[in-house]
Simulated scan of single mutants.
Amino acid sequence: MRKYWINYLIIISCFMLIFSCQEKKKNAKFKVVTTTNMISDLLHQIGGDSIEVVGLMGAGVDPHLYKASEGDVTKLTTADAIFYSGLHLEGKMVDVFEKMNKSGYKTFALSDGLPEKNKISSANFAGNHDPHIWFSVENWRLAAKFVTKQLSTLQPQNKEFFEENLRTYDLDLKSLKEDLNEIASKLPKEKRILVTAHDAFSYFGKEFDFKVVGLQGISTTAEAGTKDILDLANFIVENDVPAIFVESSVPEQTILALKSAVESKDKNVALGGTLYSDSLGNSGTPEGTYLGMYIYNMSTIVNALNVTE
């Protein structure tokens, strides 16, 4: 088996030489490479048609486990700027981005645009912060401002255009927050217990007053064991949780095992639906945008949990 990361770092060391030999076409758009499709959507909102956005990860891709392909290397070496989430969401790729930045590449972690008080610490993730920052709408507003600032520095001739797009998008995000609060208000607080495949919804829980329990840890690299499943099954029975949720970027086997464990205790628990956690939906659908994804998630959660006997 080839030494993937060793070869990858060797390639990285050659990036500057490759880049220096390439001549950018005169009329080519400013090329931005992104990791997750949440970030791609954000760059589209701010950059509009003045930039070309190239995403590495599509719908249903788990960024915790993602490994860059040889094709990704080409995308990265020809990029004018690279935006990634940070806080180790992208696993080992973060180390590569940091090395590229030291070599002169323009790489930006969205998490750098957030103050420390906005980041949730997690003892379950080697003492690092929870990387699922987009589930706080307030954090996403700050991320949009961060992207606008960086693009304006890189393309000062389009600064006013970026800032106008930010003003429009910020109004959309404010409206989104109001809509989410309205939907959440239909669910009594005693029913706001969200059980999912992995612990991706802590920011959501904090912002909308939900108790959130993930079967796996913050990173999907941590596997749930039999004891984890049995402990959570007991929690569901004790708290009379009516539904649990699959995630689009996480295999459903562990949630199905949890459902079976609950039912072995003579308690019915439904699969409440599939939530978008580490990626948006398919491009061209409402769920393929941050705004549409969040409305879908909140509606799915509230509808599944707001059951009456």
Rank of each mutant, 00 (worst) to 15 (best):
R2P: 09
K3M: 09
Y4H: 13
W5C: 02
I12M: 12
S13A: 10
F15W: 05
C21D: 09
C21Q: 14
Q22H: 14
E23Q: 15
K24A: 06
K26N: 05
A28W: 04
F30L: 06
V32K: 02
V33W: 00
T36G: 04
M38D: 10
D41S: 09
L43Q: 05
Q45P: 08
G47A: 02
G48Q: 13
D49M: 07
D49Q: 11
G60Y: 01
D62S: 07
S69P: 01
S69C: 07
G71M: 08
V73F: 13
T74P: 00
K75F: 02
D80Q: 07
I82F: 07
I82M: 06
L89P: 04
K92R: 15
M93T: 09
M93F: 14
D95M: 09
K99C: 06
T107S: 14
F108K: 03
S111C: 11
D112H: 13
D112F: 04
D112W: 03
L114E: 08
P115W: 09
P115Y: 03
K119I: 08
S121V: 03
S121D: 08
A126W: 05
H129V: 06
H132E: 11
I133R: 12
F135A: 10
S136V: 09
V137W: 08
E138M: 12
N139S: 13
N139Y: 12
F146L: 03
V147E: 12
T148K: 10
K149W: 00
L151G: 10
L151K: 11
T153G: 08
Q155R: 15
N158A: 10
N158W: 05
E160Q: 10
F161C: 04
N165A: 01
K174L: 13
S175F: 03
K177W: 02
L180P: 11
L180N: 09
N181F: 12
K186R: 13
L187A: 10
E190Q: 12
E190Y: 07
E190D: 15
E190I: 04
K191L: 03
R192V: 07
L194R: 02
L194V: 02
A197E: 11
F201Y: 13
S202D: 09
S202P: 01
Y203A: 06
F204C: 07
G205S: 06
K206M: 05
K211T: 15
V213W: 05
S219T: 13
S219R: 06
T221L: 11
K227D: 12
D228V: 12
D228L: 12
I229N: 10
L230C: 10
F235M: 14
I236N: 04
V237W: 05
E238F: 10
N239Q: 07
D240L: 07
V241A: 01
P251C: 00
P251N: 11
Q253R: 15
T254W: 06
L256T: 12
A257P: 03
V262I: 03
S264L: 10
K265H: 06
D266F: 07
N268G: 08
N268Y: 12
A270W: 00
L271W: 11
G272F: 08
G272S: 09
T274A: 11
T274P: 04
Y276C: 04
D278S: 14
N282K: 14
E287F: 05
E287H: 01
G292L: 03
G292S: 00
G292E: 00
Y294V: 01
I295G: 04
N297S: 03
N297Q: 01
S299L: 02
T300P: 03
